[in-house]
């Protein structure tokens, strides 16, 4: 394991502290993706949640490369996250360059993006699987058991955090929170698209501008996104990160 006990404790407090007024689900999921990378010593992390069609949706990724690989996985309906989601069990591929025939399209995309191994962990709420966390590493080799256990604990803590579950959540409350998370993601995509035109940037830069504005003004990302697409807020490129 690569993280100190103190740091692990801090992150778990952070992941379970979701019952606050200014809770922002997209910020939360992005932070989770970054924390997974940090604590588990992996290169990148992607997070997928299931919708009411039973389809997984990408809701956060710690890097652009991870995002592209995740989208490849979703579009081709093959990959470790889908397997972890379907089975409710961790799925590991210690070397993406081995001759394992699983997920040919996903594997090619992951290798192309510079990854050498992948681990997928189910996001569980009691007996229900709500999504999966994908961990990508640029080194081949299995993750050790402690790291996997810590990753699974983070995934489970995050599931509880997303559902805002104090005790036993009813099914409809779980649905409400999942819907809220997925709908927030759609709103962010709409705002990104809006900014590609109004700022003349690409979608990744658009997201960076959106987030920079929300942080500078201490506002929730989803509120800023809503103001942008409704034409109530005109963003200008942040002075410290000029668009180019």
């Amino acid at each position: 394991m690569s993280a100190s006990d103190r740091r692990v404790r801090e992150v778990f407090i952070e992941l379970t502290d979701t019952l606050v007024d200014d809770f922002d689900i997209i910020e939360y999921l992005d932070r989770l993706a970054v924390r997974c990378g940090e604590l588990l010593g992996v290169s990148a992390c992607g997070i997928l949640l299931v919708d009411h069609h039973g389809v997984l949706n990408l809701v956060a990724a710690s890097t652009d490369q991870a995002r592209l690989v995740e989208l490849t996985q979703l579009q081709n309906s093959e990959g470790p996250c889908l397997d972890a989601f379907m089975t409710g069990r961790p799925v590991q591929r210690a070397d993406l360059n081995d001759d394992d025939p699983r997920w040919p399209t996903f594997t090619a995309a992951a290798v192309e993006a510079g990854f050498s191994s992948v681990q997928a962990l189910p996001m569980r709420l009691r007996d229900v699987v709500l999504g999966a966390v994908n961990l990508f590493s640029d080194r081949a080799g299995p993750l050790d058991d402690d790291t996997i256990a810590l990753g699974q604990a983070m995934a489970d803590a995050a599931t509880v955090g997303i559902i805002h579950q104090r005790a036993v959540a009813r099914h409809e409350e779980v649905t409400q929170q999942l819907q809220s998370a997925l709908n927030s993601r759609i709103l962010i995509e709409q705002a990104k698209g809006y900014l590609t035109h109004s700022l003349g940037v690409d979608v990744d830069e658009a997201f960076a501008e959106l987030r920079a504005y929300a942080r500078r003004n201490n506002r929730r990302l989803t509120d800023v996104a809503d103001d942008v697409v409704q034409g109530r807020l005109m963003l200008r490129p942040a002075p410290e990160s000029p668009a180019d």
Partner: peptide, 9 residues
């Protein structure tokens, strides 16, 4: 949804 946002703008 990105395209919808772009077209809206």
């Amino acid at each position: 949804h990105q395209a919808a946002g772009r077209l809206a703008a």
